[in-house]
Design a protein around this nucleic acid. Structure first.
Lengths: 347, 347
DNA sequence: GTGAAAGCGCTAACAA
DNA sequence: TTGTTAGCGCTTTCAC
């Protein structure tokens, strides 16, 4: 017999887990049939589907999606990149994103970029390396380096919570400049004439504030020195930052009659400090928040704030990605969802 | 020449992306050398490292971690399973978890189970299918089915925010029963004699409340009917739920002098409603929150609450997993991090 | 220190 | 409808 020498066996520890091949053996079918039962059961005859399902049941098999992703180049994962999680205004967006994506069979992977973008490059590499089918960004990718990487990766991308004439890909948000201007005009109409700002230091807030200040000056609501009193705290904004901010503003400009805050949390702190200082809201001081978080209607007094539909942005971003991945044409890849000022009792 | 017939070429669309083989070709080394430069550069001579790094740089190569995970059976992903994201008390935990894990090269994948656990089985399958190196659960896995699946998967698991005599694997949390009892005793010592509860309906809250009620009855703080007035809202607790709760409680039991709330958000709503009703806090009504969220020190009056160290739980959970994955022996896989009552002005 | 060969567990492409 | 074959892009194992 002309038997070739058996080559030395190299065996790898396959981690012992059940595989699709095991299930196929149990069901008495080819591996691909098991794969089809899992991914497109309509292409398999009912009795084989039945057999395979029963084999899966009995063995407790859980498909290895990593292997499936590698073979199919669809990971069914979507990455969300946020500055932070705790205290973030993006959580409603993440929540609705997760829900909409889960319903379509996608899982979310989370990246925290920090507000300083120090680890941005590392983070992008870690995320792109996992080959998500799509990426959602809280905000706009500002660094040219980051944009280049994302575009080179060719992964569908949705930027959110902002507008820009030069989106990297898809976009759903609102104009921070318009918000700033609208709040200034709102306060003017309510009779305020000495407005101030307490704001976190992030870039979006700064654009809001600039537009607010310009409109305020145009409406002659600046201080005697021609400027709009300003207090900056670190991002994300907190109630403590709001309290400290109000104290600082009043020390420098005791005659202010309105404060525009960069978030509802900051506004909550301002309400508290006003209370502590015996300053009547809204009589002596109007307070406007941003975000219309769930608690905004239930502060004392109820917070007048800018309603931003975080859930809608999450849902729209998710659907943008789902459609794009499905190869559907998306007619309008930039969506301005606008905002509204919700007038309650604090202004 | 005895040339074998060329077999028909089946080509798959390799999605065009750069691979490690391309980089190897550019650098003039074997693929495995590129792999080593990426994963254990200390095993490669400095000049080859240099050559390979330069090739990576020039080509813009991003390693496919999916393929790496499949080959190595280490995904460098950790899954976190939460009831919800928006309004959740677990966000500090998720934040510190993400930070600690990112520093060790792990990425977080997020699963939302919902408070009703309706999609739990699906979710577990989606998560286990991605072969994370570890799983962190917000709370305890209660369903026997879920525990079985997790244990069958053999993935290291940390349950958090609770204590149980029968952890599925590792555990870091605190005793909700002790919290309930401690708050009852705290209120007793502060002279309160008619205590009430406003609580979300989740299972942890219910155990807290039961212990609170038992201690309260023991201390003779029950109402004339022998019961502790109770109001339940849906989970997660909100300020609106707190307001409605206080109104309902006062309608039924006008003589209550203290309220224990299931979260700081609920307590914020209670403070607001008390203000609206002209009820002095703490003089006529003491309010105690739970969680010591960032804003708790900055409500009016400042909220007395139970401090729970969410960040610590995240860090400890992350380190449990990192150590376990590294094969280190963890001497103490159950950790009670306790709690403290932070006395401020509301009680 | 470097490399060749053989998979990891799955699915796309093709064939029957 | 079902199956066969050949990878997906990487790392492990073994050899030098």
């Amino acid at each position: 017999m002309n038997m070739p020498a058996e080559p030395p066996k190299r065996t790898r520890r396959s981690k012992g887990g059940l595989t699709l091949v095991d299930v196929a053996r149990v069901a008495g079918v080819a591996p691909i049939t098991v794969s089809r039962v899992l991914n497109s059961p309509e292409k398999v005859s009912p009795d084989l589907v039945q057999k395979v399902r029963s084999a899966i049941e009995r063995t407790g098999y859980v498909p290895n999606l990593l292997a499936g992703s590698l073979a199919s180049t669809h990971s069914r994962m979507i990455a969300a990149i946020l500055p932070t999680i705790a205290g973030s205004v993006f959580l409603d967006t993440v929540q609705s994103l997760t829900e909409t994506l889960a319903a379509a069979g996608y899982q979310l992977i989370l990246g925290q970029a920090g507000y300083e973008n120090s680890r941005e490059d590392e983070l992008l590499e870690a995320i792109i390396g996992r080959r998500p089918d799509g990426i959602v960004l809280a905000g706009i990718m500002r660094s040219a380096q980051g944009r280049r990487r994302l575009q080179a990766s060719a992964i569908p991308l949705v930027e959110t919570w902002d507008l820009t004439p030069t989106p990297a890909d898809m976009l759903v948000g609102f104009s921070h400049e318009s918000v700033g201007e609208a709040v200034a005009e709102f306060l003017y109409q309510r009779g305020r004439r000495r407005v101030a700002v307490i704001s976190a230091s992030d870039e979006r807030a700064q654009r809001r504030n600039r537009a607010f200040a310009q409109a305020a000056v145009r409406l002659d609501m600046q201080g005697p020195d021609g400027a709009i009193p300003f207090h900056t705290t670190s991002a994300p904004g907190t109630a403590a930052g709001g309290r400290a901010g109000l104290r600082a503003l009043l020390a420098a400009s005791p005659d202010i009659d309105a404060v525009f805050c960069s978030s509802d949390m900051v506004a909550l702190g301002v309400l508290t400090e006003a209370h502590a200082l015996g300053i009547a809201v809204p009589d002596r001081l109007a307070v406007v928040g941003l975000g219309d978080q769930a608690f905004a209607a239930d502060t004392w007094p109820a917070l007048t704030t800018v309603h931003l539909d975080g859930r809608a942005m999450g849902t729209i971003a998710a659907n943008f990605l789902i459609d794009r991945i499905a190869g559907k044409h998306i007619p309008e890849v930039v969506r301005d969802i606008g905002f509204t000022i919700v007038e309650r009792d604090s202004a």
